[in-house]
């Protein structure tokens, strides 16, 4: 066993690790088109603003930013997605429109999940969906706190996890892992660094 591990395993592992990784890239699952009656209805109404995809059995729609409050409202009222599971965002600093904002919805009636994704730029804002799902209140506040994305019409859009006077939005990719608001730390904690 031992000599095998010492001598044989080392050259043996890299091809082993590489073997699943290399074919994984070309053969890795690719998002396919998602066809359903609901998507057809939306497409009829909104045309090209919607791209419906499915990946690993999970359905999602990439929609134009302009459709946002209306499409979500339709999803709640017509399609019975009465439970907004989560709102989150992803930052892609190299893209022209830097942020993906994602709504994860669930329908109790259909036992079905769907994700709605839209892209917005650095200085763009989104209409708030607090009036559609009250749960969005804190969820939108967290997205604002972490990414600096503003939701117009939110009743009380302020930071939620970080302190009020903090500068910077930590989940942006240009925010370093040990970066902090030094001034805030010095004034409020009386120490040089919170690290």
């Amino acid at each position: 066993m031992l000599p095998e591990k010492g001598a044989g395993a080392k050259p043996a592992t890299p091809p082993k690790a590489a073997a699943p990784a290399v074919p994984a890239k070309p053969t890795g699952p690719v998002p396919g088109a998602w066809d359903s009656a609901m998507v057809a209805r939306f497409k009829r109404q909104y045309g090209s603003g919607i791209e419906a995809l499915t990946y690993l059995g999970q359905n999602y729609m990439v929609v134009d930013r302009s459709l946002i409050p209306n499409l979500l409202l339709l999803l709640r009222d017509q399609e019975k997605f009465e439970y907004c599971v989560d709102i989150t965002a992803v930052h892609y600093p190299k893209r022209e429109r830097q942020f993906d904002v994602v709504w994860i919805l669930y329908s109790f009636e259909k036992n079905e999940r769907v994700r709605v994704k839209t892209m917005i730029g650095e200085n763009e804002s989104l209409p708030s969906s607090v009036e559609i799902w009250p749960t969005c209140n804190w969820l939108e506040r967290e997205v604002f706190d972490m990414f600096g994305i503003r939701f117009e019409g939110h009743p009380d859009l302020k930071r939620i996890l970080l302190p009020e006077g903090w500068r910077g939005h930590p989940l942006r990719k240009d925010y370093g892992i040990i970066q902090q608001d030094k001034e805030w730390v010095q004034i409020n904690l009386g120490i040089e660094s919170g690290q």
């Binding site: 690790a17 990784a21 998002p31 990946y55 999970q58 599971v85 989560d86 992803v90 994860i104």
Partner: peptide
């Protein structure tokens, strides 16, 4: 299961949730 030594999932995103003792615990991974 047979898991590659270096975990490198293909490009994509997933949401998976379970029933934690407190409610729906979900992970959205890109």
């Amino acid at each position: 299961a047979k898991v590659p030594k270096v975990i490198k999932p293909p490009v994509g995103e997933i949401y998976h949730s379970i029933e934690a003792p407190k409610g729906e615990l979900g992970y959205f991974i890109v």
